[in-house]
């Protein structure tokens, strides 16, 4: 059997694939977090709970309404995004201009409440969600067996990330968003309704988390803790990528998914800490992150 540094190649490729899949979720989540922090100055600790809400929404849409995966992929981001808009309008709005700590505490509290509500209703055991029929099975690529669904997750995530990047970097709306991130009062003085822009941005960031949640439902068990486990790593990735950098979030998301997986191959003991070690190193040598714009 072929080996790499004494590691069987199939194991290596298998972990690489797993890393890309985790990376897909990291990328979609850190993208939303980064855009939200850039414009709102809110450290959105409720992001993981909204990712979980996306997964549960998919499960509920199927269980209660018989709507399958593809419907959920379209509807859950809208439903959870609308919920995000409510959060922004009713709660976050009052915290702008205050210390970041207020937003952090409020969103942490919200995350605990939302997770508690789901635990109360559905228990903490976890629910199964089937892979959609069209994506069952796997293909043998020669060096690895690739389950269709996992390939699709990486593909869909890449498309979503690229579309988000293009929306922000290449359109008029995106230019307004970037400008408002830099100097909101001046953008408002041009006649642009910045509060609406802020609300929509938060809704869109939350919708991205929900979209990731739907994609995650068939892979991970749908349980109230699924977001909490992920969000800490995702925050480290946002810090490494650089707050406010779109490409930075996407590249660091996928990159650290892979780095984490490879660490699992070569030195499993460090696999859950490697990202935080990288974060410490980045903060020491490039405090604004690898791709950060602001000082």
């Amino acid at each position: 059997m072929d080996t790499l540094f004494g590691i069987p190649l199939p194991l290596f490729y298998g972990q690489l694939l797993l890393g890309l899949i985790n990376g897909a979720f990291y990328a979609m989540l850190s993208l939303g977090l980064s855009v939200i922090f850039g414009l709102l100055g809110i450290v959105n600790l409720v992001h993981g709970a909204l990712f979980m809400t996306g997964a549960f929404t998919a499960w509920i849409l199927l269980d209660t309404f018989g709507l399958g995966f593809w419907w959920s992929l379209a509807l859950a981001p809208l439903i959870v995004g609308a919920f995000g808009i409510l959060i922004e309008r009713l709660l976050l709005r009052h915290l702008y201009g205050l210390d970041h700590m207020y937003g952090l505490v409020l969103t942490l509290g919200l995350a605990l409440v939302i997770e508690g509500a789901f635990r109360n209703k559905y228990g903490s055991g976890g629910l199964a969600y089937q892979i959609p029929d069209a994506l069952r099975g796997a293909t043998n690529l020669g060096f690895i067996v690739l389950p269709y669904y996992r390939g699709a997750v990486v593909g869909i995530s890449l498309v979503v990330c690229l579309l988000t990047w293009a929306l922000i970097e290449k359109t008029r709306l995106g230019a307004r968003l970037r400008a408002a991130t830099e100097n909101a009062p001046m953008v408002q003085a041009f006649g642009i309704n910045v509060p609406v822009l802020v609300t929509l941005t938060y809704g869109a960031g939350v919708a991205l988390a929900a979209c990731a949640g739907v994609l995650a439902a068939p892979i991970y068990s749908v349980n109230p803790q699924m977001g909490a486990n992920l969000i800490i790593v995702v925050f480290a990735i946002v810090v490494i990528g650089g707050m406010g950098s779109i490409m930075g979030s996407v590249l660091s998301g996928f990159g650290f998914g892979v780095i984490e997986a490879l660490t699992k191959v070569f030195y499993p003991q460090a696999s859950s800490t490697v990202i935080f070690l990288c974060m410490v190193a980045v903060l020491l040598f490039r405090p604004s992150g690898l791709f950060g714009r602001r000082s």
């Binding site: 001046m186 003085a189 006649g191």
Partner: peptide, 30 residues
């Protein structure tokens, strides 16, 4: 502020407020 601007008053601030993350044409069309 945005309603004042929509009424037909435009403001060019002392610090010029050119957006660094936007290109010149994006600044112009903002």
């Amino acid at each position: 502020t945005d309603q004042v601007a929509r009424a037909g008053i435009a403001f060019c601030p002392e610090e010029r407020a050119i957006f660094a993350s936007l290109t010149v044409i994006e600044n112009l069309l903002l």
